[in-house]
Amino acid sequence: MSYKDLVVMVVDDFSTMRRIVRNVLRDLEFKEIVEAENGAQAFSLLKSNKVDLIVSDWNMPVMTGIELLKKVRADDQYKALPFLLVTAEAQKDNIVEAIKAKVSNYIVKPFTPATLAEKIAKVIPRS
């Protein structure tokens, strides 16, 4: 599998972070990047897009990243979907909560493009 066939969804209420993540994903040559401003919008867009990876912020209005993760994992259709949480909430309790909710991996802000690429490679091994 190559990233060139894959669609990734980026979820963040700040357009700046969506743009930072998008720049990295473009360099990694993903086929398509779908963007959402919060968890609720992301879950809705999941229904109309075949998504192969979600990269979501944690702290957002309307529906947070951890709430989105739990909703995704509770749905048979998406329970195995690779899900990367991007968070400034790197406190131990938060990490434990994310792992319990079956996050695929997480990345702590601030991060470099190389770190994000490494985390993506861990959840979607590149052939």
Binding site: F14, S15, T16, M17, N59, T87, A88, E89, A90, Q91, V108, K109, P110
Partner: peptide
Amino acid sequence: RDAVGELTNMICGDGRR
């Protein structure tokens, strides 16, 4: 302006960590 907000989020988050 959005970037100023996100930088503030990140600095506050990193400081709290």
